[in-house]
Design a binder for these strands. Structure first.
Length: 424
RNA sequence: GGAGAGGUGGGUGAGUGGCUGAAACCAACAGUUUGCUAAACUGUCGUACCUAAUUACGGGUACCGGGGGUUCGAAUCCCCCCCUCUCCGCCA
């Protein structure tokens, strides 16, 4: 969430920038939260004064008891009764105000970076780069779901039986290809300085809150009701939460982590061609990279991460484009996001395979990840993350783009991992 | 799942109702000493919020796993929850 002090000092900017995100109630909400904060301050002062008085009296009473002046002590005790009542009242008022502030702050999205343009949605995103050649496939080229059946490498019907739609079973070379991609991505991330971690696949409420999945995206997660756990929609959640409530050293920057995890998403409201085959699944594999750095260096890190993702796609030989998300499409918690989309040549569609974002201090404020700056002051860190990469759509593009009449050619960089160079 | 023990500042660890925001030690930082290193000595050494002030000397409040209670007063007593350890049970 946004820092209240920042909002107070940059009120107009915040309102203007929230407008870019099409956040309708920006002006009211910001004014309301500042008004509530003023109320909070006076209530706080009030409460502190009452407590000061109580503390003084308590000391006096203690002293009187020691001197054996019982009756005087009893007299003072009477005085504390009214104070305690006041304290209770003011305390309740304060607690309510604080709760209101928190609820309101949680409902206000992050403000977008200066480079983020206004826009309604996907259609207003800006393509900033396009790399690679779009392959010329013959007219009878098959979409990946048909290739999966033809070579018996991914079985959607089997998954339907075992669990339901969106939970495919990978078989034979399909399963091996998955494993190869995961290892390739992890090795590349390690080479670029990301320490590998294996996080839990379920998280508690606090973790989901800290990275911003809760409260507003609860419907996108699978919930384990008995234990109040959430299946992770991305490794971003557990990996970023590694740093929750910690103070890191400036000399540790940039902190880089990578993790392979399976991701679980309910994808409520998706339909049609979007969910065909591997295009949108409820369970999928992904390697995630996470970075934590100081506010002065976070945007450099964003570039470094974009470079990492670009290199992966270049190695795989997939044509891709980098898209800067507009205000209408960027996520609630992000300040700046670049999507990477590969061209899936048989479907003739661009598929999002990575999303690289700088959250600035928005997540860090909930996470309480801080560092001490040069003046010894506590500062919130900036957090960033990106997919590197999400598997299913990569697989879809690989299958479609590399299909030949003899089978599907495996890109060179993967052969050391798959130990085969064609799927037939 | 059952029984017991325990959770204190960056770390170790003292503290069972007021003199404890918290001893001591270690680490860290600054300084003195020194040809250099080490040692020794001196000082600093939590966070958040409120308030005063305004670029610097303050005052107050809260926080000893989390929440609630008893009390004039709680790290200390009581209740609930979470976590860790030991033993038993179960199990990959």
């Amino acid at each position: 969430m946004l820092q209240l002090n920042f909002i107070r000092e940059n009120k107009d900017l915040v309102i203007e920038r929230l407008g870019v995100k099409n956040f309708k109630t920006a002006k009211e909400d910001i004014e309301k939260v500042l008004a509530l904060d003023n109320d909070r301050k006076s209530a706080q002062k009030n409460l502190d004064d009452i407590k000061t008085e109580e503390n003084k009296l308590a000391k006096q009473i203690g002293g009187l008891f020691k001197e054996g002046k019982k009756s005087e002590a009893e007299e003072l005790k009477q005085k504390t009764a009214t104070l305690k009542q006041e304290e209770k009242q003011v305390g309740e008022t304060l607690a309510k105000i604080e709760q209101d502030i928190r609820t309101l702050l949680l409902s206000i999205p992050n403000i977008p970076h200066q480079s983020v343009a206004r826009g309604k949605g996907e259609e207003d995103n800006e393509v900033v780069k396009m790399i690679g050649e779009i392959p010329n496939l013959p007219e009878d080229a098959l979409p990946h779901w048909e290739l999966c059946a033809k070579y018996d490498i991914i079985d959607f019907n089997l998954g339907n039986k075992i669990t339901g739609a969106g939970f495919p079973v990978y078989k034979n070379k399909g399963a091996k290809l998955q494993r190869a991609l995961i290892n390739f991505f992890l090795d590349e991330a390690t080479k670029d300085g990301y320490m590998e971690v294996q996080p839990p696949l379920m998280v508690n409420e606090q973790s989901a809150m800290a990275t911003g999945q809760l409260p507003d995206k609860e419907a996108q997660m699978y919930v384990i009701p008995l234990d109040k756990f959430y299946m992770i929609p991305t490794a971003e959640v557990p990996v970023t939460n590694i740093f929750r409530d910690t103070i890191v050293e400036e000399k540790e920057f940039p902190i880089r982590r990578c993790a392979y995890s399976q991701c679980f998403r309910r994808e409520a409201g998706s339909y049609g061609k979007d969910v065909r085959g591997l295009n949108r699944l409820h369970q999928f594999d992904k390697v995630e990279i996470v970075c934590i750095d100081s506010p002065t260096h976070s945007y450099e890190q964003l570039e470094v991460m974009k470079e990492h993702v670009s290199n992966l796609l270049k190695n795989l030989g997939l044509p891709f484009r980098i898209v800067r998300l507009c205000g209408g499409d960027i996520s609630f918690t992000s300040a700046l996001t670049f999507d990477f989309e590969v061209f899936s040549a048989a479907q003739k569609r661009w598929l999002e395979v990575s999303s690289v974002s700088n959250f600035e201090s928005y997540q860090a404020n909930r996470l309480k990840v801080r560092y001490r700056d040069k003046d010894g002051k506590m500062q919130l860190c900036h957090t960033l993350n990106g997919s590197a990469l999400a598997l299913p759509r990569i697989v879809a593009a690989l299958l479609e783009n590399y299909q030949t009449k003899d089978g599907i050619i495996v890109p060179e960089c993967l052969v050391p991992y798959t130990k085969f160079n064609i799927i037939n």
